[in-house]
Design a protein around this nucleic acid. Structure first.
Length: 914
RNA sequence: GCCGGGAUGGCGGAAUUGGUAGACGCAGCGGACUCAAAAUCCGCCGGUGGCGACACCAUGGGGGUUCGAUUCCCCCUCCCGGCACCA
């Protein structure tokens, strides 16, 4: 039943199932059909995406976050890319011109670490990993346009990092600054603020130190307002991601206040930022950060203070712990004047003041700020309450949370009685009149430091000349190529010891000069790869007009761990590229974002007598169940001794609970792995790995194949080779009477299809998989299949017309196809459906199939379910009321009581209120 | 502490957004086939009471709105994630 010679293919393609078999395989052999399907797609270049002229199909750009080539795929990858592939294939069926590209986030530290361990250059390690992982991805059958593959470690790619860096440098969007940076002592490199998590390096987990290093910054703060505002233009993003970004950007409205003082006869201002200008009359001291110039000045003539400042600066302390630390401080001996009362205010150095936020100095209002309260308490500074909260009495004994609430000003002279906004407005106006302050907006977001003291990254295109200083590499000398044969040995960046890279001529004066050896943060690489996919072969420019066709990404899929870092940087770069005129009409790169949940697995462990914990892989453990199937324990298969149940946790090496996707694919096939991943939970939720669940998915596909095979034998008999006859389904309007079983089947199948279509649109794929299972269950009975032996052929006993079964099975195959494309591809041919399933449209729901002459209604009394009744669809309200009231179950519960009201929900229920 | 998201059978999860709670699957139990096991197929499967028809209870806990609440509102408990000395 495959398209044979002489039979025109209605889709206009001349496709043939690649294997010429006399009959369909009896059993499901995933490895064989998957190999064949993939070879077929390769040969027909089925997933190559090309730009279509105006008026063509709508474009759909479906993108999954590209992987770091760490060695082999893990389950998280499989889940991520399967979700993307389901969306890709579904959008194709909906008639879109879909692009799903793939590439490699190929620069990064693990390559250097592997190089140190094995003595292999990072480049070789990376390229080997790419080759292996690409093979794995291909074996999963993803509808990827491999023609657009890119790797960020290739000069063709990273030259444009360098090129854009230079453009940004010209415009002041990149600048060099020596500043305090986060230093990861293990990786020996600088980390961006975004890469410091709980005071530790995001990769190494080592406590971050502070160092002063010159580095290049990208001015992301210039875009803070737009990055914040445009979050509202992203309805397709999860709320929590937007909230996380908004918090990270951290916009605060406040007042910048200057406290006047004199230094060496010069009038100066100590600037502070506050969101509580209404409490300015309660200031009893000021505090500056250890790095503040005033602290440095005072320390010069005050050795104990100098020691304290040095101690604070050392800061080899975890920031999160720092937050719990005691408030510590020392007076500087300097005094400033209160901007309104002219009172003398002492300036302290405080360990709790951050140099990087606001002005690096605060006004101390112990009456209404918890930190200032603790500080004042410790050093005996006065506490002056200036805000009154109605119905509360202030006491300086202990801090109360309500002390920091908004209220009315008291003890504040002319501001007494004003509320928060009134006081802030009045005080800001007075300060402005004196030139001592004004309203100000402050951001938490800081500029993005991109210099990394590492080898395996994009070289920063700068040349250091003794005469001319830092000179940008001229465009015509790009790319600055990174040598690929170096092997780092753990003693710093090997580029520093490589004269062939290091030595060069100054582009300005021609004298001998040295190249910059710092490389760029790898987040630069991933900030625009999705635009480059539009034109990866473009050698003359960063992007071309094809980017305009494909951008923005319609659906982006990736892990929640990138909610801030990667997604914020990418939004920033897109806006920069827009402002440089490189792309147009795009403010945001990703229209819709889906953050997939983590993949979890059971954790089993034993605690040794020395307190050491040993973890056991779930594959080596047997669960013990009681007779109800509830787990009561687990034993290690090897020794039969019990192990502890540690619950569910993210698959990780440390917990020894990972499952290698390769083993699953080899044992069950890609379709089974894909089906399980999609079926076990909705994409955004965590997914709990289960061997039994995998078995269940495999069982379903076997059943599907067995059913198809049985039916294939049935329809393969001579007179039934009429697949083409099924092309148009027209059913008599009295199908329900002539073939009640057929009408019932169509009702089931089309209701399920309606639900599946809805769930596809809202990316809830677990219920799409369940829909396919429901259709197969509905089909099993009409064929009487289950009662037969393995190979016996029996005609349908129910009298359901074959074309109804054909229609139903065609719907089943297409509903399931995005999730398990290989088996559906094969069965589509085997059962004689026209054309190639990858060009088949998503099935259309037939509304007439849902129409019934009689409907079942739920009967309720006072909202409680009491029975069911069948009634003609045409029955009116009154007729239904009467039927319901006369119904046994209803009568029993309403007997002797007055009926107050009857609620009729057409087609659903009747509720009698007594 | 602040922000966000959750809590439904033995388990993963459904419930088309206020209308039959537990779809679909897993596990379990009983049966068929088999010398036997596996595989496959059939049946049962939230709890309590009852031979049964059926009744009552049940979506973390408590209240409310409604003819009707897993769904909406208020309070509380617990869990997960993010941020956190941000002035």
């Amino acid at each position: 039943l495959r398209p044979g010679p002489g039979r025109p293919d209605p889709c206009g393609y001349n496709l043939r199932f690649p294997v010429n078999r006399a009959s369909m395989q009896t059993q499901y052999h995933p490895e064989e059909i998957e190999r064949e399907a993939q070879a077929h797609w390769d040969r027909t270049r089925a997933f190559r995406a090309t730009e279509e002229p105006r008026g063509g199909r709508p474009k759909f750009y479906c993108l999954s976050m590209f992987p770091y080539p760490s060695g082999k795929l893990h389950m998280g990858h499989v889940r991520n890319y399967t979700i993307g592939d389901v969306i890709t294939r579904f959008q194709r069926m909906r008639g879109c011109n879909v692009l799903q590209p793939m590439g490699w986030d190929a620069f990064g530290l693990p390559a250097e670490n592997a190089a140190m361990a094995n003595g292999v250059p990072p480049a070789k390690w990376t390229y080997d990993n790419i080759a292996y992982m690409k093979k794995q991805l291909r074996s999963l059958g993803f509808a990827i346009d491999w023609d657009r593959e890119l790797a960020t470690c290739k000069p063709e790619y990273y030259r444009w990092n360098q090129w854009l860096f230079l453009r940004m440098l010209e415009r002041g969007l990149v600048y060099k600054k020596t500043g305090v940076v986060n230093w990861d002592p293990v990786d020996q490199t600088v980390l961006a603020n975004e890469q410091v998590i709980d005071g530790r390096g995001w990769r190494t987990g080592a406590p971050v130190e502070k160092r002063e290093i010159p580095m290049y910054y990208m001015q992301i703060t210039k875009y803070a307002q737009e990055l914040l505002d445009d979050l509202e233009a992203l309805p397709g993003w999860p709320e929590r991601v937007k909230t996380m970004q908004a918090n990270w950007i951290g916009k605060s409205h406040g007042v910048n206040i200057g406290f006047p003082y004199e230094l060496a006869g010069k009038k100066e201002l100590l600037r502070v930022f506050t969101t509580r200008a209404d409490t300015v009359m309660g200031v009893t001291f000021c505090a500056v950060a250890a790095e503040h110039p005033l602290a440095a000045h005072a320390a010069r003539s005050n050795p104990p203070l100098a020691d304290f400042v040095a101690e604070c600066k050392r800061g080899s302390v975890i920031e999160a712990e720092l937050a719990q630390l005691d408030k510590k401080g020392m007076p500087t001996g300097l005094f400033v004047a209160h901007p309104i009362t002219r009172e003398k205010i002492e300036v302290w150095v405080g360990n709790y003041v951050l140099m990087a936020y606001g002005e690096g100095a605060v006004m101390g209002v112990p009456g209404h700020d918890e930190r200032d309260f603790a500080f004042a308490g410790k050093y005996g500074l006065p506490i002056k309450p200036v805000i009154d909260i109605e119905g509360r009495t202030y006491s300086t004994d202990a801090w109360q949370p309500w002390y920091s609430e908004y209220g009315r000003c008291v003890n504040s002279g002319k501001y007494d009685g004003l509320d928060y906004q009134g006081a802030v407005d009045a005080i800001a106006a007075d300060l402005k009149a004196k030139g001592l302050g004004d309203k100000q907006v402050t951001w938490r977001l800081r500029d993005w430091g991109i210099s990394r003291q590492r080898y395996w990254g994009t070289p920063i295109p700068i040349i250091h000349c003794a005469a001319c200083g830092d000179v940008p590499v001229p465009d015509k000398q790009l790319p600055v190529v990174l040598p690929e044969d170096l092997v780092p040995d753990g003693t710093g960046n090997p580029l520093n010891k490589t004269p062939s890279f290091l030595d060069c001529e100054c582009p300005k004066c021609g004298k001998k000069a040295k190249r910059e050896t710092d490389t760029m943060d790898t987040f630069v690489d991933s900030s625009w790869y999705f635009i480059r996919y539009a034109c990866p072969d473009q050698g003359n420019s960063m992007v071309d007009e094809r980017a305009k066709y494909w951008m923005p990404v319609d659906q982006y899929i990736g892990g929640i761990e990138h909610a801030i870092l990667h997604l914020l940087y990418s939004r920033f770069w897109t806006k920069v590229m827009r402002d440089l005129g490189l792309i147009s009409g795009i403010d945001e790169p990703f229209a819709r974002l889906l953050t997939q949940g983590m993949v979890l697995n059971e954790i089993f462990y034993r605690k040794g007598s020395d307190g050491r914990i040993t973890y056991f892989n779930p594959a080596d453990v047997d669960l013990k169940l009681d007779d109800k199937g509830q787990r009561i324990g687990a034993v290690l298969r090897e020794d039969g001794e019990p192990v502890e149940l540690g619950g569910m946790g993210t698959m990780s090496k440390s917990k020894n609970n990972g499952v290698d996707p390769q083993e699953i694919i080899e044992k069950y096939g890609a379709d089974t792995a894909r089906l399980f991943m999609m079926f076990a939970s909705p994409p955004e939720q965590t997914l709990e790995w289960s061997d039994a669940g995998i078995e269940g998915a495999a069982r379903f596909l076997k059943r599907l194949w067995a059913f198809a095979h049985q039916w294939h034998l049935l329809v393969a008999t001579e007179s039934k080779r009429r697949a083409g006859d099924y092309a148009h389904y027209e059913y008599p309007s009295d199908l329900a009477r002539s073939h009640p079983a057929a009408a019932a089947l169509r009702l089931q199948v089309h209701s399920v299809l309606k639900q599946a279509s809805f769930d596809m649109e809202r990316t809830q794929f677990n219920t799409v998989a369940s829909a396919a299972m429901k259709i197969l269950n509905a089909l099993y009975n009409p064929l009487g299949f289950h009662a037969l032996g393995d190979t016996q052929v029996v005609p349908p006993a129910t009298g359901i017309p074959e074309r109804v079964l054909h229609e139903s099975f065609g719907i089943l195959l297409r509903v399931l196809y995005p999730i398990t494309p290989h088996i559906c591809h094969a069965l589509w041919y085997e059962l004689g459906y026209a054309g190639d399933i990858i060009t088949a449209p998503w099935p259309a729901m037939d509304a007439t199939a849902l129409e019934q002459d009689e409907v079942e209604l739920v009967l309720q009394v006072n909202g409680k379910l009491r029975g069911h009744m069948r009634a003609p669809r045409s029955a009116g309200r009154e007729q239904l009321e009467q039927l319901a009231l006369a119904h046994d179950a209803v009568a029993r519960h309403t007997a002797g009581q007055a009926v107050k009201k009857v609620i009729v929900v057409p087609g659903r229920l009747i509720n009698v209120v007594v």
